[in-house]
Amino acid sequence: MSEVREELLWLLFLVRFNMNNPIRNWRRQKKIHQFRNRIGTVETWTEIIAPPAQFAGEAPYVVALVRMDDGGFQYGMITDINSEDIVKGMKVRATVRVVSTGAAAEDIITYGLKFVPVDPV
């Protein structure tokens, strides 16, 4: 019973905080695919140990600020690499991955930009 209650409270939280709003997700995700497969360079990065509630299941995770070869900067988690192998100046490729699955079994899945190393480490 307490697990059900916790899940309900979490869903209530998500609704109140507008974290997993489907319309908002749909609007944002239309723009993400244009960056897929683009190459960039890690400018600075951090490993998040204390995450916000909606990323609790992902922590710890690395987020980088990437200088894109074709101009501008993008944020994204770096995946498929250990955090101790990440260095400033490393080349990464943009990919579209799941960034949040929500708490409930049928909650919407949020896709976002992530980066993977261009060269295997």
Binding site: I48, A50, F55, T110
Partner: peptide, 8 residues
């Protein structure tokens, strides 16, 4: 969306 916090 990238999971960045203010500490981050």
């Amino acid at each position: 969306l990238a999971g960045l916090t203010f500490p981050g």
